[in-house]
Amino acid sequence: MERLTLTPRDVEYLVLEASVITPDAVCGKTLEEIAELPVLEGNTKWPLGRFFTITGKVADAAEDQGIIIDGDVPRVKYIGSKMTAGAVLCKGDVDMYCGAWMKGGRIRVKGNADAFAAIQMEGGDILFEGNVGDYCGASYRGDWRGMKGGNIVINGNAGVTLGEYMMGGKITVKGNVGINAGIHMGKGIGAKDPLPTIIIHGDSPGRVGAFMTRGNIYVLGTIEVMMPGFSPDGTEELEIDGVKTTFQILNGDHGEKGRGKLFVRT
């Protein structure tokens, strides 16, 4: 895999929309061409090279292209959005829409990610080593079709509304989550489709699986406030990430006549 390194320069800006930082956009181009790819600062278009020093090698196909962002970019949006193959590694923080609408490839963020990360993801793998903001793996605003596939792993904590309208794929959170995890989960999928899954190792303040109609949510920590629309339905021993745990099964959300399953560690 060829590596292309973007090092943030010491230039001030308000906020950048850099949907060009994806393997698909850079592959097959020369370094000069890459430096001239447009990024948006509000209503102004700038070349990418104004904000990043670009070094390394470029591959011919997106699959063989790796991009390394060597530093913190907490105000650069759309990193790795809509990518289909290849890999992106960010050594610091990223802003909103990291890995949004992603179809394939891998993203790894060593710092924190802001809101709307990986929304409407369809495939690929994302690993956030820090925390992520709100609406991770959710649907785009106003759409009722959320994440369809792929795998998200969050080593830190997640914000509110994780996996809203989730239709497939898997999200694992090693830390805690905000309210509304898995809200509207399973809307729009049939009985035979593979079920979406959320695994929460930490705690949740509540509203887990609200409005949920299908899918599985596993909570290994505690839920502070249980949704009234769930009713207990026995216990089961399951293996999650190699560890056997006994779960209480709850069905719901009865407010929506849902058939989702919530597994809470007893």
Partner: peptide, 9 residues
């Protein structure tokens, strides 16, 4: 101009 916008939040 005393502050970089990146620290905005």
């Amino acid at each position: 101009t005393g502050r970089t916008p990146a620290e905005g939040g």
